[in-house]
Write a protein that binds this DNA or RNA. Structure first.
Length: 314
DNA sequence: TTGTGTTTTATTGCCTCC
DNA sequence: GGAGGCAATAAAACACAA
């Protein structure tokens, strides 16, 4: 008898047996006692092997205990135990193995299968149903743990990506600030020169641009060039529209390269100063920046720096 | 041996489906 | 309304350290 705890009608079987360690370790000496001449109904159940298969595979030659049939038990001394209130019993290793295999095939239990399993295992159908129910609950818990691990690793990967992108963003942000400051200085320099000379005959501050461009970084170069353009558009009083700053080497190369920033600065050399001023303003794209989570790069109002960033972004 | 934490079996109550 | 599933929970059985 493999059922150390089996036996709805003989609760004391478990009482007798389970005084020792292990679910079934102590039951074997009592097998013959409880199972004299009894044999389980190894009829096999639908969609699975029969309990006998498990039994054989287990290398066990133990007969199967019939928990709810203790009529074969001729020992009257145990009768008193059988009349005590039923206690909780553990299924045998073989029973659990059989149920496990059945569960692997199909984790739901249709009525016929339940009855067949109960028959094969010598359990009550209700016990089989309960076992499947609890087994499904355990499976679900395990599944949740697995899902959690998958999500955890996914999260870790995404977080690593985010951190690296965040660092890159900070780096670029610092670069933007640096270039903005540089541009402001250039602007100041240009203003002071304008105050010294006649504005109409003044040359654009190519040197500053050239100096900036000579720093080597393309991004900086394009930014400065772009910003210089926008300055000339938005604040066209600084430069004559016919002035050769459009022929600036950097600028020209950008135009030739199809730099999208030129789109926002149409050639208006034949327009008056006011017209150009107004047009350049009206042609400026709306300063709509995506509101990022941390609020960075959110520019609700158009400022000089904003414009510079916007242009740089393009 | 005992105290304690874990696992397994079983119950209860609620919900859904037919 | 009954059957069956599920979540929450109780309680017995078990494992194990001290």
């Amino acid at each position: 008898m493999a059922a150390c705890g089996g036996g709805g009608a003989n609760p004391n079987f478990s009482v007798l047996v389970q005084s020792q360690r292990g679910p079934c370790a102590a039951s074997q000496p009592l097998e013959a006692f409880f199972l004299s001449g009894s044999s389980p109904s190894f009829l096999g159940s639908r969609s699975m092997m029969s309990f006998a298969d498990v039994h054989q595979a287990n290398g066990s030659t133990r007969p199967f205990f019939r928990p709810y049939d203790h009529e074969d038990n001729g020992d009257d001394d145990l009768d008193e135990y059988f009349h005590q209130p039923e206690k909780k019993r553990r299924l045998t290793v073989d029973q659990v193995q059989f149920l496990e295999r059945s569960f692997e095939v199909e984790n739901k239990l249709e009525p016929e299968r339940k009855i067949q399993l109960a028959k094969d295992l010598g359990l009550q159908p209700r016990q089989v149903a309960i076992w499947f129910q609890n087994r499904r609950a355990r499976w679900k818990t395990k599944q949740l743990e697995k899902d959690y691990e998958v999500l955890q690793s996914s999260y870790n990967g995404l977080k690593a990506d985010y951190d690296s992108l965040f660092k890159e963003k900070e780096k670029l942000k610092a670069e933007v600030n640096l270039l903005t400051e540089l541009l402001l200085k250039e602007k100041e320099l240009g203003s002071s020169e304008l105050s010294d000379k006649d504005a109409l005959s003044q040359e654009p501050p190519k040197k500053a641009i050239a100096d900036s461009a000579s720093e080597g970084e393309v991004s900086k170069t394009s930014t400065v060039a772009c910003q210089q353009e926008d300055i000339s558009s938005a604040k066209s009083d600084m430069f004559d529209s016919d002035s050769p700053h459009f022929a600036d080497g950097v600028h020209s190369s950008l135009l030739e390269a199809g730099d999208s920033s030129h789109v926002f600065e149409p050639d208006q050399s034949d327009l008056s100063q006011d017209e150009e001023d107004n047009l350049s303003k009206s042609l400026l794209p709306p300063y709509v920046f995506p509101k990022l989570e941390d609020g960075d790069y959110s520019y609700p109002q158009a400022s000089f720096e904003d414009h510079a960033f916007w242009c740089w972004s393009y």
